[in-house]
Amino acid sequence: MKKIIVTLALSAASTAAFAHTGEGAHTHGFLSGFAHPFTGLDHLLAMVSVGAWSVRQQNAKWLPATFIGALMAGMAAGAAGYAAPGLETGIALTVALMGVLIAMAARLPAALAATMVGAFALLHGNAHGLELPQASSALGLLAASAVLVYGGSLLGRVSPALALKLSGAAIAATGVALVATA
């Protein structure tokens, strides 16, 4: 058992050879992919927001899984070289809209909520697929995304309604600022 744990830990920590050198280049291993969503405010807020908002929706247990599944599809499209038009603006708009939904404690029909969350995840996944197209970094990114979305779900469950609404307003304002700079 100890050998299996050590092997898995070393596999997760290993990175691919540096294909790109110089300033701003990403390493492309599992850990790089895992760290990536924590380093961009837009992605961090969107993922936590989806989780926090989803717990107050009908059929809430499916929304985080919908997000992760659509995130994978968007990553595959990005890794294949497809860049959605207006990608950065679209991502910033997802942050603003999620903040508004949380601030208003909006409840949507299950199908609409899943479609919206899926569309948001496609955009975020597309950006990540363009930035981190290697399989090892994609796995790390998916693991971190699951942590953020399900962590947001936990925050949504334990946060008082007023605190959640105020957080939503702050997220919406951040999203508007991100749109202005996109």
Rank of each mutant, 00 (worst) to 15 (best):
50 V>E: 05
41 L>E: 10
9 A>E: 08
132 L>M: 13
38 F>P: 03
97 L>S: 10
64 P>M: 03
104 M>S: 15
91 I>S: 07
36 H>K: 07
120 F>P: 13
93 L>V: 09
109 P>R: 02
70 A>W: 15
20 H>W: 01
172 A>G: 10
109 P>F: 00
106 A>V: 12
172 A>M: 09
80 A>D: 08
11 S>Q: 08
152 G>K: 00
111 A>G: 09
177 A>S: 13
154 L>V: 12
87 L>G: 06
16 A>E: 11
105 A>R: 15
11 S>L: 15
155 L>I: 07
104 M>D: 12
94 T>C: 12
111 A>Q: 11
94 T>L: 04
162 L>W: 10
48 V>G: 00
38 F>K: 06
179 V>P: 01
32 S>F: 05
52 A>L: 05
74 G>M: 07
55 V>G: 03
73 A>Q: 08
141 L>E: 01
33 G>H: 09
37 P>N: 06
64 P>E: 02
119 A>L: 14
44 L>F: 13
74 G>H: 00
6 V>G: 03
171 I>R: 04
23 E>G: 15
82 Y>Q: 11
135 A>Y: 12
75 M>K: 00
9 A>Q: 11
57 Q>T: 05
101 L>W: 02
74 G>T: 00
19 A>F: 12
90 G>D: 09
34 F>C: 03
18 F>M: 15
153 S>K: 07
98 M>S: 12
74 G>I: 03
135 A>P: 14
35 A>R: 04
174 T>A: 15
22 G>R: 09
57 Q>W: 07
48 V>D: 02
27 T>W: 04
100 V>H: 08
9 A>H: 09
72 M>Q: 07
164 L>P: 04
118 G>F: 02
73 A>R: 04
45 L>E: 06
160 P>M: 06
181 T>Y: 14
94 T>E: 06
158 V>T: 14
42 D>R: 01
27 T>K: 10
157 R>H: 08
167 S>V: 09
13 A>Q: 06
133 P>M: 10
157 R>V: 00
114 A>P: 00
92 A>Y: 03
37 P>I: 07
138 A>Y: 08
87 L>S: 06
137 S>T: 11
48 V>Q: 04
68 I>R: 02
49 S>M: 02
105 A>V: 06
116 M>A: 14
132 L>K: 06
102 I>E: 11
